[in-house]
């Protein structure tokens, strides 16, 4: 008898060429994305508080994923404008994990270097660097480093706020570090390897 593995069955069900991108995004998303269930009703685009700044509403992105328009999707600013408020997620009649799909698209855009504006990816990367170094986030270092790079002209305007925060004792100027940084590093290192194999 031939071997019928899960993979072989799935491969047959999804052999439609155009669905491979949809499938890829779905597999890379935390939880079960239900992405293939989208009925294009627009609940997500209607719910989104920042839709006015998006090039495409989430609904359009899902249609584009279905159409296999990889570059167009990854180049869109939509995923970067998402504020993770989850309004779309709880209202979606098809239970698509929209916010998590946005995270997936960010990750894919970064890897493909297809983002138009580096502000958001850099912010995320800076944040991640801090966490990987200290185990904790470090708001002061993060904000100042980030503003320095992306909004230098804003800095004078923001300075009073930053100073206010420091003055009120709300911004530590020294990063905290967790005790077992070695352990965290080992975990993250292994996780990164697993990420590549998945």
């Amino acid at each position: 008898m031939p071997q019928m593995t899960d993979e072989r069955v799935r491969a047959r069900l999804t052999r439609e060429e155009d669905l491979s991108l949809l499938h890829e995004v779905s597999m890379k998303t935390a939880g079960v994305s239900h992405l293939e269930m989208c009925i294009q009703c627009g609940t997500c685009g209607g719910s989104c508080p920042s839709a006015m700044d998006m090039e495409h509403t989430p609904r359009m992105l899902f249609a584009m994923l279905r159409a296999g328009m990889r570059d167009e999707v990854l180049r869109s600013n939509t995923q970067w404008i998402c504020v993770s408020c989850y309004h779309c997620v709880v209202r979606c009649p098809q239970e698509v994990h929209i916010a998590d799909v946005m995270y997936t698209l960010k990750g894919m855009a970064i890897k493909a270097k297809l983002y138009q504006d580096s502000t958001a990816p850099d912010f995320s990367q800076t944040f991640v660097d801090m966490v990987e170094t200290y185990g904790r986030s470090f708001e002061f270092g993060l904000a100042s480093r980030h503003y320095l790079k992306h909004f230098p002209l804003r800095l004078p305007g923001m300075a009073p706020m930053g100073l206010g925060m420091i003055a009120k004792g709300r911004m530590g100027i020294k990063p905290k570090k967790i005790r077992r940084m070695d352990q965290l590093k080992a975990i993250l290192e292994r996780a990164s390897q697993l990420e590549l194999t998945s």
Binding site: C44, G45, C48, A51, T57
Partner: peptide, 10 residues
């Protein structure tokens, strides 16, 4: 508040 899905705008 709605996305007009034919116009592609909220």
């Amino acid at each position: 508040q709605v996305e007009d899905t034919l116009a592609g705008k909220q």
